[in-house]
Structure formats: C-alpha cells, structure tokens
C-alpha cells in the first residue's frame, strides 16, 4: 500500500474565543478484516485505529476508529481558539506506524 498521505484544513487565523472547524483526511485502505481475496483467504485487518489532535501539546480531540470506518477516513471536529500555536495530528496504524502532520494557527 502506498504511504498514507494526511491532509488537514485549519483556518490560518482566528479570533480569540472563535469556534473553528478542523477537517482532516488521510489516504488509507482501512482493510476491515472481513474481506476475502480471490483464493478465499481472509485479508487480514489493517486499519488506522486512532486519530488524535493536540494543540501546543495539550490534547483536544481523539477518535477511536473501528473497521466500520470508510476507506480514506475523514474526521472533523471543533476547537475554541485561545492563543497562537500549532496543532499536531496523529494517526495510529494497526501495523504500529504513526502518521503525523502539523498546522499553525494564529490568534489575533
């Protein structure tokens, strides 16, 4: 499988106290462990089982994903802007890999 590519959309600027929506997407097959290949063997499960978002090191939002989550999983949530800083997003794969990306937010 090609390396998962994370994509996030965070507004570059926000006012203090403003509620901003963060949208994330990562390319991943999310193999459910329910499918069979041509020879009838079960294709082993390999999904991203956890998504986390932190701002300046403080946890903001997490999602536990199960095999019922679609391929190329999408996740959106909100954040109440307080101060300027950096988001860190982490996706945890069943195979032990972590995929991460960051995004800066400036609070005026």
């Amino acid at each position: 499988m090609a390396n998962p590519v994370p994509r996030v959309r965070v507004p570059a600027q926000a006012k203090a106290g403003e509620m901003i929506e963060i949208k994330t997407l990562i390319s991943h097959e999310m193999e459910s462990g329910q499918r069979k290949d041509a020879s009838g063997k079960v294709i082993p499960r390999q999904i991203i089982n956890k998504f986390t978002a932190a701002f300046n090191g403080k946890p903001v939002f997490e999602a536990d994903w199960f095999p019922s989550i679609s391929a190329n999983p999408y996740q959106s949530f909100f954040y109440k802007a307080k101060e300027s800083g950096e988001f860190k997003f982490t996706w945890k794969d069943d195979n032990g890999s972590d995929y991460t990306t960051t995004a800066k937010l400036t609070v005026a």
Partner: peptide, 27 residues
C-alpha cells in the same frame, strides 16, 4: 447490522468548544 457493533468513539475535551464531530462509515 455490521459485522462488528462498534463504529467509532469520539473523545472530546473542553478545548473543543463544542461537542461536534463528523466522519464517514461503512454500513
């Protein structure tokens, strides 16, 4: 009605400002 009953678990904090989240699932 899926092979496994769990779909997703969202974990919020007060930092979120509002308890709202979206994703996409298989049914």
């Amino acid at each position: 009605g899926n092979p496994l009953p769990n779909v997703v678990t969202f974990r919020f904090t007060p930092e979120c400002g509002k308890a709202s989240a979206s994703t996409r699932m298989r049914l």
